[in-house]
Lab assay of single mutants.
Amino acid sequence: MKVIFLKDVKGMGKKGEIKNVADGYANNFLFKQGLAIEATPANLKALE
């Protein structure tokens, strides 16, 4: 799943980066902790 990092995550990515991560990792950790959001077309447009 493609995500946009909202904060730096050690060993994974930096704020503003777009990366592919495992679905479970994104849903169970990154999204719940507020560290990333899904890289949807609307979210990608908002990032620009």
Rank of each mutant, 00 (worst) to 15 (best):
A36Y: 02
I4A: 03
A26S: 05
D23V: 15
K2V: 08
F31K: 05
Q33G: 07
V3Q: 00
L47P: 04
K14N: 10
A46Q: 12
L35D: 04
T40P: 03
V9S: 01
K7I: 11
N20M: 15
L6K: 03
F5D: 00
K19C: 09
G16R: 03
L35I: 07
E17S: 06
E17H: 04
F29Y: 12
Y25C: 10
E38S: 06
A36S: 01
L44A: 03
D8C: 07
Y25G: 05
V9R: 02
D23S: 15
N20W: 15
L44H: 04
A26Y: 13
A39P: 02
N27G: 09
I18E: 04
F31I: 12
G13C: 06
V21D: 01
M12N: 05
A39R: 00
Y25W: 10
A22C: 11
A42T: 08
G24C: 12
A36R: 01
K19G: 07
L47R: 06
P41W: 10
K15V: 09
T40S: 10
K45G: 08
K2S: 11
G34W: 06
L30P: 00
E17F: 04
G13I: 02
I37C: 07
L47D: 04
V9T: 03
K19D: 01
F5R: 00
A26V: 08
A39E: 02
N43V: 10
E17A: 05
M1K: 09
V21K: 01
K7S: 09
K19S: 07
K19R: 12
A42W: 02
D23A: 15
G16I: 00
K14S: 10
N28P: 04
N27C: 15
K14Q: 11
G16S: 03
L44Y: 04
N43Y: 05
N20V: 15
V21T: 02
L30I: 03
G16P: 01
E48A: 14
K10T: 13
A36C: 05
L35F: 10
D8T: 10
M1S: 05
A42I: 10
M12C: 14
G11Y: 10
D8K: 05
A42S: 11
K15G: 04
A39Y: 11
L30M: 03
Q33Y: 15
K45P: 04
K32V: 08
M1V: 12
K10I: 12
I4S: 01
G11N: 07
K7L: 06
K10Q: 13
A22I: 09
K15F: 07
F5M: 06
L30T: 01
E48K: 10
G11E: 06
F29L: 07
V3I: 10
I18A: 04
K7D: 08
K19E: 04
N28H: 14
A42R: 08
K15Y: 06
I4W: 02
L47T: 07
Y25Q: 07
A22N: 13
T40A: 04
N27L: 15
K2D: 09
E17N: 02
K14D: 06
N28G: 12
K7R: 14
G13A: 15
I18Q: 06
D8F: 07
G24I: 14
D8A: 08
F31M: 06
M12H: 12
P41I: 10
K2P: 07
I18R: 03
P41V: 11
V21Y: 04
V9L: 06
E38D: 04
N28F: 12
G34D: 04
L6S: 02
V3Y: 01
K32M: 11
N20G: 07
I4C: 05
P41E: 13
A36G: 03
T40C: 04
F5P: 00
K10H: 13
G11D: 09
